[in-house]
Computed example of a mutant assay.
Amino acid sequence: MPSAGRAINALTLSLPEGDSAPEWVEVIPAGTFKGRDGRGPWFSNVPAILQSFAADQAAGIDPVVDYNHQTCGPGTKAEAAGWIKQLEVRDGAIWARVEWVAEGAEKVIAKKYRYLSPVFDFDATGRIVKLISVAIVNVPNLFLRALNSMETSVDLLKQLIELLGLDPAADAAAVIEAIKTLQSASADTTTAMNSLRQVTGAAADADLKAVTSSIMTGFVPKAEYERVANSLRQLQAGTAEAEIDKQLDDAVAAGKIALTSRGFYKAMCSADMSAFQDFIKTAPVVVKPGTDATSRAMNSQQEKPHDNPLLANAKARAASH
């Protein structure tokens, strides 16, 4: 059973001889048949062939009759020997009415070309679904080899279209564009993989599975991360608290601040430790080291009652009453 594709120069049919180029020629045999090189078997899906021909006609397209399948060869000069203007079914065979170009008619009449070779598309079951063109040929074997190579290219193009998931009607340009897109995506993937390898410390040639393993190994669940972060914050807060207490203890011990003012200066330390340290460097001693009394308080304790004029006046007023 053949795979879907296009048959080129696989079948030859004799041109009728006469004094004029034949108007009607058989282009696809009736029933099931094989090509002269063994390809096939094929059989006509007559409704599909006629429908595709009618669609081309409606679009102003006539299948060409060319020389040696030149229209099937890329970059080859391809002149028309005639144009197919009508299809007809005769006992299961497909016949075509040809409108010959003068030069083509002359070559047929002079027997410079003696055979017809149709080009047709077929599906995976071998059913012929579309007549593409017809060539007048003399069956050269070397040319057949080149056409067979082209047929392989046609099959390859269809396979690429299927693999790329493109529309079955896509052409070679669409296939090339899809391949370029895949190449670009592949380059982006390679760049991302290299970045992941570096971040995770994976080997330079590590595959996706190995990189994924590295990521999972180094992954820390969110709950665990938050627990550790909270513990760190508490530890940092405790360290800061201890540093503030040490600065205040040193300042009290040096007599730079009173023990009763510790709360005020603790707030100052918490807000700006550097400002507190600068203040302590230049602050005078206001408290006798080892006590919590201010210098003013100590001086007041040393004063005698009669030396205090305010107290003396108060006592004098009380005595006069």
Score class of each variant (00 low, 15 high):
184 S>H: 09
197 R>K: 13
82 G>I: 02
172 A>H: 14
132 I>N: 02
113 Y>W: 12
171 D>V: 05
99 E>S: 15
97 R>E: 09
247 Q>D: 07
108 V>K: 01
256 K>G: 00
27 V>T: 05
226 E>R: 13
71 T>F: 12
193 M>F: 13
212 T>G: 12
123 D>A: 10
10 A>Y: 00
71 T>V: 12
127 R>S: 13
27 V>Y: 02
4 A>L: 03
60 G>Y: 06
63 P>N: 12
145 R>C: 04
25 V>N: 00
214 S>D: 08
193 M>H: 07
304 K>D: 07
83 W>Y: 14
163 L>D: 07
69 H>Q: 06
196 L>Y: 04
207 D>I: 08
92 G>V: 08
2 P>W: 04
191 T>D: 11
261 S>L: 03
96 A>H: 02
15 L>V: 08
6 R>L: 10
220 V>F: 03
30 A>M: 07
304 K>G: 06
63 P>S: 11
22 P>V: 02
56 D>A: 15
106 E>I: 06
80 A>K: 12
251 A>R: 00
152 T>H: 15
101 V>E: 10
157 L>V: 05
115 Y>I: 09
311 L>N: 10
303 E>S: 14
225 Y>K: 15
143 F>A: 06
136 I>V: 15
245 D>Y: 07
294 T>E: 05
102 A>C: 07
239 T>P: 00
305 P>W: 15
68 N>E: 10
29 P>R: 11
39 R>L: 05
321 H>R: 13
18 G>Y: 02
122 F>M: 03
262 R>P: 00
255 G>I: 01
87 L>I: 11
74 P>W: 04
230 N>I: 06
61 I>N: 08
137 V>T: 15
214 S>C: 11
161 I>W: 01
293 A>H: 07
217 T>N: 10
196 L>I: 10
197 R>F: 06
170 A>M: 08
313 N>L: 14
154 V>W: 03
188 D>P: 00
145 R>W: 07
300 S>D: 14
161 I>V: 12
135 A>I: 00
155 D>L: 09
255 G>Q: 08
266 K>A: 09
93 A>C: 10
32 T>V: 09
321 H>D: 15
21 A>F: 03
150 M>N: 05
166 L>N: 01
33 F>P: 01
113 Y>C: 03
175 V>C: 15
240 A>H: 07
102 A>G: 09
4 A>T: 05
134 V>T: 02
49 I>K: 00
186 S>R: 13
90 R>S: 05
189 T>E: 07
173 A>Y: 04
23 E>G: 04
206 A>R: 04
304 K>W: 06
35 G>A: 14
241 E>F: 02
64 V>H: 01
291 T>Q: 02
159 Q>E: 11
10 A>R: 05
55 A>K: 13
87 L>A: 03
302 Q>I: 04
309 P>M: 09
52 S>N: 08
75 G>P: 03
271 A>K: 13
197 R>A: 07
293 A>D: 13
229 A>N: 13
26 E>G: 08
308 N>F: 03
63 P>T: 10
311 L>A: 14
256 K>Q: 04
75 G>T: 10
10 A>L: 05
86 Q>M: 05
128 I>R: 00
199 V>A: 15
14 S>N: 10
1 M>A: 14
316 A>M: 14
251 A>V: 09
280 I>E: 03
8 I>C: 01
199 V>F: 10
117 S>W: 01
75 G>I: 04
200 T>W: 04
168 P>H: 07
235 L>G: 11
216 M>W: 00
243 E>D: 12
140 P>Y: 09
195 S>G: 07
188 D>L: 06
205 D>N: 08
